[in-house]
Measured scan of single mutants.
Amino acid sequence: YHADPSLVSFLTGLGCPNCIEYFTSQGLQSIYHLQNLTIEDLGALKIPEQYRMTIWRGLQDLK
């Protein structure tokens, strides 16, 4: 799967570019796929713990 530029820029902007593959490997290719994820969902996606809160907060800021 290839990540949408919106996803790449979002995660890169948060300092988490190495997390892109965790999302794309589950078929979550764009920022729209991420918008309703919970902190528990990020854990289920195996996002490293040190990035989960950062990503979750970033998603809240998009709403």
Rank of each mutant, 00 (worst) to 15 (best):
residue 53 M to E: 13
residue 27 G to I: 01
residue 18 N to V: 08
residue 3 A to G: 15
residue 60 Q to T: 10
residue 36 N to F: 04
residue 13 G to E: 13
residue 15 G to I: 00
residue 40 E to Q: 06
residue 16 C to G: 01
residue 61 D to K: 06
residue 9 S to N: 14
residue 33 H to E: 11
residue 21 E to Q: 13
residue 21 E to P: 08
residue 37 L to I: 08
residue 43 G to K: 14
residue 3 A to D: 14
residue 51 Y to G: 03
residue 45 L to A: 04
residue 9 S to A: 06
residue 14 L to N: 01
residue 6 S to N: 07
residue 53 M to K: 09
residue 9 S to T: 08
residue 56 W to H: 14
residue 23 F to C: 03
residue 37 L to C: 07
residue 11 L to G: 00
residue 12 T to M: 12
residue 55 I to F: 01
residue 48 P to N: 03
residue 5 P to A: 14
residue 14 L to W: 02
residue 19 C to R: 00
residue 29 Q to M: 12
residue 38 T to H: 08
residue 16 C to P: 00
residue 41 D to A: 07
residue 22 Y to H: 12
residue 52 R to D: 02
residue 10 F to Y: 03
residue 5 P to C: 15
residue 33 H to F: 03
residue 47 I to H: 00
residue 51 Y to N: 05
residue 41 D to Q: 14
residue 20 I to N: 03
residue 32 Y to T: 11
residue 32 Y to M: 08
residue 53 M to G: 09
residue 49 E to D: 14
residue 24 T to M: 12
residue 57 R to N: 05
residue 62 L to G: 09
residue 15 G to Y: 02
residue 38 T to A: 10
residue 3 A to N: 12
residue 48 P to I: 05
residue 18 N to E: 12
residue 29 Q to D: 14
residue 22 Y to N: 11
residue 25 S to I: 04
residue 20 I to M: 11
residue 9 S to P: 05
residue 21 E to L: 05
residue 33 H to L: 05
residue 19 C to L: 13
residue 40 E to W: 07
residue 36 N to D: 14
residue 8 V to M: 15
residue 47 I to V: 13
residue 23 F to G: 00
residue 22 Y to D: 06
residue 46 K to Q: 12
residue 62 L to Y: 11
residue 19 C to V: 13
residue 51 Y to W: 09
residue 49 E to W: 08
residue 6 S to Q: 13
residue 40 E to V: 06
residue 46 K to G: 12
residue 20 I to Q: 07
residue 10 F to C: 01
residue 38 T to F: 02
residue 19 C to W: 02
residue 20 I to W: 03
residue 55 I to A: 00
residue 5 P to Y: 15
residue 26 Q to R: 11
residue 12 T to D: 15
residue 5 P to V: 15
residue 50 Q to S: 13
residue 58 G to V: 01
residue 47 I to T: 02
residue 43 G to C: 08
residue 44 A to S: 13
residue 13 G to N: 15
residue 30 S to R: 09
residue 57 R to A: 08
residue 32 Y to K: 15
residue 30 S to C: 08
residue 25 S to P: 04
residue 3 A to C: 15
residue 43 G to P: 10
residue 63 K to H: 03
residue 2 H to T: 15
residue 42 L to I: 04
residue 29 Q to S: 13
residue 7 L to P: 01
residue 30 S to H: 09
residue 7 L to E: 02
residue 12 T to V: 08
residue 60 Q to E: 14
residue 25 S to K: 13
residue 20 I to E: 08
residue 1 Y to R: 05
residue 3 A to P: 15
residue 49 E to G: 06
residue 15 G to Q: 06
residue 60 Q to H: 03
residue 16 C to R: 02
residue 29 Q to P: 11
residue 52 R to K: 09
residue 42 L to A: 02
residue 5 P to Q: 10
residue 4 D to W: 15
residue 42 L to Y: 10
residue 63 K to E: 14
residue 45 L to F: 10
residue 24 T to V: 07
residue 56 W to E: 09
residue 56 W to A: 11
residue 2 H to C: 15
residue 29 Q to A: 09
residue 4 D to G: 04
residue 6 S to W: 04
residue 9 S to Y: 04
residue 38 T to M: 06
residue 7 L to I: 10
residue 48 P to K: 04
residue 54 T to S: 09
residue 15 G to F: 02
residue 12 T to K: 14
residue 38 T to D: 04
residue 58 G to H: 06
residue 48 P to H: 02
residue 48 P to W: 00
residue 22 Y to V: 07
residue 36 N to H: 12
residue 35 Q to L: 07
residue 30 S to V: 02
residue 47 I to L: 12
residue 49 E to C: 08
residue 41 D to T: 05
residue 11 L to W: 00
residue 1 Y to I: 15
residue 5 P to H: 11
residue 17 P to A: 07
residue 17 P to R: 10
residue 21 E to M: 05
residue 22 Y to R: 09
residue 19 C to T: 13
residue 7 L to F: 03
residue 23 F to N: 01
residue 52 R to T: 11
residue 6 S to H: 07
residue 45 L to Y: 13
residue 14 L to R: 03
residue 57 R to K: 10
residue 1 Y to C: 05
residue 12 T to P: 00
residue 23 F to V: 01
residue 41 D to K: 07
residue 49 E to Y: 04
residue 38 T to G: 07
residue 2 H to L: 15
residue 59 L to Q: 02
residue 48 P to Y: 00
residue 34 L to T: 12
residue 27 G to S: 07
residue 32 Y to C: 14
residue 61 D to N: 09
residue 5 P to W: 12
residue 17 P to T: 12
residue 7 L to N: 00
residue 33 H to R: 08
residue 32 Y to S: 14
residue 2 H to I: 15
residue 27 G to H: 10
residue 9 S to Q: 14
residue 31 I to D: 03
residue 5 P to M: 15
residue 6 S to I: 03
